[in-house]
Amino acid sequence: MSIDKDTARKVAHLARIRVAEDDLPALADEFNKILGFIEQLNEVNVDGIEPMTSVTPQRLFRREDVVTDGGMPEKVLKNAPDAREGFFAVPKVVE
């Protein structure tokens, strides 16, 4: 499996990271080195082996689905780059 410039562009967009067109070949090259390293996993026989989902056999902790916290909009908005009238402000989303 080899990643070309077009795939690199697509992955960068999926990850929502802007990469300049000139930088795409070098990025594709780095991906290929890392994926080449990862390809070793194909040597392993994994027939009948379940993917590991949790390192401990315990069940995830559960609780009643009720509100346990809240009522602090100022704190929630405190670190926002742009907050107005109790909301996060973003560029226009709907045309």
Binding site: I38, L41, N42, V44, V46, I49, E50, P51, M52, T53, V55
Partner: peptide
């Protein structure tokens, strides 16, 4: 091909 295979290998490592 990648993620699930890696998680299977993780089971073997454990």
């Amino acid at each position: 091909a990648y993620y699930n295979r890696a998680r299977r290998v993780r089971s073997l490592i454990k």
